[in-house]
């Protein structure tokens, strides 16, 4: 599904990712962990297509296509969605407009006609209910005045409606209380499917109690220095990152 090969990325001439390699297969759930400054958010930003990140080497392919050659919106239409760490407030753009425009863009990409209004409303209401969000939310501006938890729930709601092939969740757990974390996790878990991959970038092991990954990677100084199964998270929680970094240095 996603192949990152020897990826090198610089920000303002400073190399942040220094040869990162990662393979995500369909149906897998991966967690990428690591200390501050390891390059976690740079990796998400490059995959999403943000400006200001210079790829100096390596490649990223998504279902065999060169992701780095695709426009931001093409990546989403192809099925790659990013859940933001800090969802942007967009005053004046109603959630319903965003959802409808995004869903129709995807349908057009798939050669489907625009969704009929009743069908769309039925779908949206069902997903809102699942995320324990009120219907009035549809006519509120995107993330405007939302609490941290509401913003993250909104990111997951968009995923439930747009059904990406690969969901990349950037610190989806940051700033969430336990109730919100449970709702968000249920949303993500409902997306788990043999054909769909999920990548979580996170700082905390707590998230992984709720969304149990198949693979865990430790990112440090721009490279993946250790990979393992879910037991690695527990060990990191207990012992911190230093031992992994030392082990890798040897």
């Amino acid at each position: 599904m996603l192949e990152v090969k020897d990826l090198r990325v610089s920000v303002e001439d400073k190399e942040i990712l220094k040869g990162l390699t990662l393979t995500i297969n369909p149906g897998e759930v991966h967690a990428i962990m690591g200390p501050n400054g390891a390059g976690k958010s740079t990796l998400s930003a490059v995959i999403a297509g943000r400006d200001g990140y210079e790829v100096t080497g390596g490649s990223i392919t998504f279902e065999g296509e060169d992701l780095l050659e695709m426009e931001i919106e093409e990546r989403a239409r192809a099925g790659m969605l990013l859940g933001f760490q800090y969802p942007v407030e967009i005053p004046g753009v109603k959630n319903v407009y965003l959802l409808k425009a995004a869903l129709n863009a995807k349908r057009e990409h798939l050669g489907l006609p625009e969704i009929e209004a009743p069908e769309f409303m039925k779908l949206v209401r069902e997903k809102l209910q699942f995320m324990k969000m009120d219907n009035s939310f549809l006519h509120r501006s995107v993330n405007e005045g939302f609490s941290g938890g509401e913003k993250k729930r909104n990111e997951i709601l968009q995923m439930l409606i747009l059904e990406p092939k690969l969901a990349l969740l950037d610190e989806i757990d940051s700033g969430l209380d336990i109730d919100a974390l449970k709702i968000v996790s249920e949303g993500v878990n409902s997306l788990r499917d043999a054909g769909r991959s999920i990548v979580m970038v996170t700082h905390y092991q707590r998230l992984l109690d709720y969304i149990v990954p198949d693979h865990i990677h430790v990112l440090s100084d721009g490279k993946i220095i250790k990979s393992g199964d879910k037991s690695l998270a527990l060990e990191l929680e207990k012992r911190g990152y230093d031992w992994v970094i030392e082990e890798a240095a040897q």
Binding site: G49, E73, E89, V93, A105, K106, V142
Partner: peptide, 27 residues
């Protein structure tokens, strides 16, 4: 940032600009 957020959901750049222009009027 808002433009990026909309495009990252698959919305084409022109329509994203349109939505933000309408949003400006909606204030």
């Amino acid at each position: 940032n808002a433009l990026f957020a909309l495009r990252s959901r698959g919305i084409g750049e022109e329509m994203a600009r349109g939505l933000l222009t309408l949003a400006f009027a909606n204030e």
